[in-house]
Write a protein that binds this DNA or RNA. Sequence first.
DNA 1: TATTGTTATACTCTATAACTATA
DNA 2: TATAGTTATAGAGTATAACAATA
Lengths: 153, 153
Amino acid sequence: MAQPALIESKDGAGQGPASLDSVLGFHIRLAHGAVYRHFSETFATLGLTQKQVSTLWLVAEMPGIAQSELGNRLRMDRATAMSIVSRMQERGYLWRERCPSDGRKQLLHLTDEGRNALDQAKTCIEEHERWLKSRFTSDEVKKLVEMLARIHE
Amino acid sequence: MAQPALIESKDGAGQGPASLDSVLGFHIRLAHGAVYRHFSETFATLGLTQKQVSTLWLVAEMPGIAQSELGNRLRMDRATAMSIVSRMQERGYLWRERCPSDGRKQLLHLTDEGRNALDQAKTCIEEHERWLKSRFTSDEVKKLVEMLARIHE
DNA sequence: TATTGTTATACTCTATAACTATA
DNA sequence: TATAGTTATAGAGTATAACAATA
């Protein structure tokens, strides 16, 4: 983790990236990988993944959210949302309620166990975020979040 | 993709993130997902993944790089590097050379076919990067890359 | 017809473990 | 002992396709 990721090199004059190191998408992927790995270590004991925590958190923030809406907000398609919600249900962290006004929809709610798991997860998130944010000033964090949001919104 | 990713909410006073939307790691993951999806669309016809392109590109930049060193630079463990290098070899894009001075190492080289594939890939990358960078000024891109590098270096 | 959920399937990435060969 | 590669295995995320139920 000490050496530079790639050789030093600059972009050519208008003919595309000369070096892999100048590709923005490349850095997003590497940064995501580093965050993913640290997250996994932090959450090894809890046995929850990023997506699973995001799901519990969002359901806690919006009780009764439809499964499809959860997918939209976490940028998952139906099949992916389905598999994650099902796993969280199997573990007893949330339950599905058939929507009375629209029989197609499944409304999601946390169980007490799910709320407990989320509380523990939030403590881990704090630690994880401290590790991540320690390399930035608070202004930089704000700017970084704002720029990343421009990508995924 | 139009609506805000999450409900509006701010952090509490020193007791951790109040809303998922204020978690930096969350935005990194969503941004990575958006980039991943656009990349996949752009590269559907070429049939190459991000990791595969990175691998070809790095071998082109550093001919004779050892497989282990490739893994270090692209932040993959041995097993992951192995599977990606093997697939690129199966497709005839690179070949392994046993290192004469250290019999444990495999030195990597692109084939002519691999160089062709990389050239095509770079054209796609340009298009992909234009899509990605269009939301930023060039100063912002520089700042973003620099901040992301602080995470993965 | 469109939306939502469901199931089945497949592929990539990631990681661990165990094994071999070499240093 | 340590390093490099190899193989096997497993889990997570992502996506597509096909199907049923509902609007």
